[in-house]
Each structure stands twice: as structure tokens, then as C-alpha cells.
């Protein structure tokens, strides 16, 4: 009994700041303005207009996660390996932007990609045609990849550095060239890092609204934008709450699926 006492303040904190708001969201989601039980707002979210937004959110989040994986895995390998001598510079370049505020970083991209931004000014200077860089899906994906890449690299990196060097040597000794060492030893051993990286990128990607607002310019509405509008512009808290609950279910489901894969891998051991 005594050992539970130190946990008490945290329990109170979690109850007040996590459980109660969650229950409130659930209450709003399942009721209408008069406070009577209804599933109307869930049904409303299944209308084509919103389903399209939902599909776009999932699609962009998947693309961003995949890009983060494709860019992040080799980067994590370079950071974990000892072949690249200028590793420290790379780490600094990678970490310094993280010291800046998320919004500032994203605004910085605006000035780069704008019609009269740095890139287009440079193209103009070279007498090349300007590019439509902002306010489309590509810009949103780029913003997500840029902002969430560290969440992919760090878990993979921390798994890679823990892989025993002698396992790599053992594989080489048994006839595996570099490609096979990677596919049969390094990659399978880094699966837990990859899975947590995917989770940590996919979740913020699917719920973001700042990136789509700034870089998508309102043309690429995501679920996060819809929720934000319902709460702050339309004042339809019930609908906003219902979408939130729906997204929560989606995220929980995908996490369960991922951990299933993870456990399946361990089951093979």
C-alpha cells in the first residue's frame, strides 16, 4: 500500500488533465446540442465530403511516413555507423532546427516556397519559369516529412547502435555480403525501431492542422483542420468531438495492428 502513495499525485494529474477532458470529448461526441444521446455526428462524418478529407489525411500521412522511413533509415544508419567521419556536423545540422519553434520552422518554408520566395526568385534570376511550390499536397507532405523526420530517425538510430558488431561479423563470416548482412541481420534486428518510428510519425501526421493550414493554404483540408474549424469557427463542438473520437479509434486500431506485427516478429525468435 505504501508503495502506491508516490503515484498518487500523478494519478490525480492524469485524472484531471487527461481522463476528464477525454470523457468530455466522449460526452460531446455522443450527444447533440440539447444533450440527448445521438450518433448523428458520426453519421455526418461518413458523408462523402468528410470521407474525402479523411481519405486525404490518411493518404498524406502514409506518404509522409513512408518518405520519412525511406529518408530516415539510411540517415540513421549513417549516424550509427563509423564510416562517415563528419558525423558530428550531420548530427548538429539535424538537431539545430529542432531547437526552433515548430511554427517558426514551418513559416520558414513559406518564405522559401512562396511565389516570390527564395527558390522562385532564384529561378527568376536564372530566367527559368517559376514553380508552383506552395498550397498543394506536395507542400504539405514536405512540411510533414521535414517536421517529423527526427521522430523516425531517433528510434531507428537507437536500435541500430545497440546491434552487436560481432553479429555483423558473424554474418559476414558465414558468407553474407553487405546486402545480405543488411537484409538478414541488420534489418530484422531494427524492426522494433522502425515500428516505433512509424507510429511516432504517422500519429502527428494524421492529426496535424498547422502544416496543412500554412503550406496547404486551405486547399488541402485535413481531418485536423476540420476538427479545429468545428471547435473554433463553426462552434459545433459535438461534431468536432465525434471526429476526434473517430480519429482516436483509427489511431488505436493502427497501433494495435503495428504491435501485432511487432509481436509476430518476436514470436519467430
Amino acid at each position: 500500500m505504501k508503495s502506491k502513495l508516490p503515484a498518487f499525485p500523478y494519478l490525480v494529474f492524469m485524472a484531471v488533465f487527461i481522463l476528464v477532458p477525454l470523457l468530455l470529448v466522449a460526452y460531446y461526441g455522443f450527444t447533440d446540442k440539447q444533450g440527448t444521446f445521438t450518433l448523428e455526428f458520426f453519421r455526418k462524418f461518413l458523408e462523402p465530403l468528410y470521407l474525402k478529407v479523411f481519405a486525404r489525411s490518411i493518404w498524406l500521412a502514409l506518404v509522409s511516413t513512408l518518405l520519412c522511413l525511406v529518408i530516415g533509415y539510411p540517415l540513421a544508419m549513417i549516424l550509427a555507423g563509423d564510416t562517415f567521419k563528419k558525423k558530428n556536423i550531420l548530427i548538429v545540422l539535424f538537431i539545430v532546427p529542432m531547437w526552433m519553434n515548430f511554427l517558426v520552422r514551418t513559416y520558414a518554408w513559406l518564405t522559401l516556397l512562396e511565389n516570390n520566395g527564395l527558390i522562385n526568385s532564384f529561378l527568376d534570376f536564372l530566367h527559368l519559369p517559376k514553380l508552383e511550390l506552395l498550397y498543394n499536397n506536395r507542400a504539405v507532405v514536405m512540411g510533414m516529412v521535414y517536421n517529423f523526420l527526427p521522430f523516425m530517425v531517433l528510434p531507428i538510430h537507437s536500435v541500430l547502435v545497440k546491434i552487436d558488431r560481432s553479429l555483423i561479423e558473424a554474418a559476414e563470416d558465414l558468407g553474407a555480403d553487405r546486402l545480405r548482412v543488411f537484409s538478414r541481420v541488420t534489418l530484422p534486428l531494427s524492426v522494433p525501431g522502425v515500428l516505433s518510428g512509424i507510429t511516432m510519425v504517422f500519429m502527428p501526421s494524421i492529426t496535424t492542422f498547422v502544416i496543412s493550414r500554412l503550406l496547404g493554404g486551405g486547399k488541402t483540408t485535413l481531418v485536423g483542420d476540420v476538427i479545429e474549424q468545428q471547435f473554433l469557427t463553426v462552434y459545433n463542438w459535438n461534431f468536432g468531438a465525434a471526429i476526434s473520437l473517430f480519429m482516436m479509434a483509427v489511431i488505436l486500431l493502427s497501433m494495435a495492428l503495428l504491435s501485432r506485427i511487432d509481436r509476430g516478429k518476436e514470436g519467430l525468435l
Binding site: D164, S166, A170, E172, D173, L174, V185, L189, L269
Partner: peptide, 27 residues
């Protein structure tokens, strides 16, 4: 090393943790 006709028994065994006994030997 992968082209040499020698094999090594490592000091700390270096068995592959993601493979079972059979898969280790069959590697």
C-alpha cells in the same frame, strides 16, 4: 570475410537473437 573458406567461433558466440537454433545453424 564472406569470400574466405574459413569460419569463426566468436568469443561471445554472436548468435543471431532474431533466429532460433535451427535458423542460426542454417544461416
Amino acid at each position: 570475410p564472406y569470400l574466405r573458406r574459413v569460419n569463426t567461433v566468436f568469443q561471445r558466440y554472436a548468435l543471431f537473437p532474431h533466429l532460433n537454433v535451427m535458423e542460426n545453424v542454417a544461416f
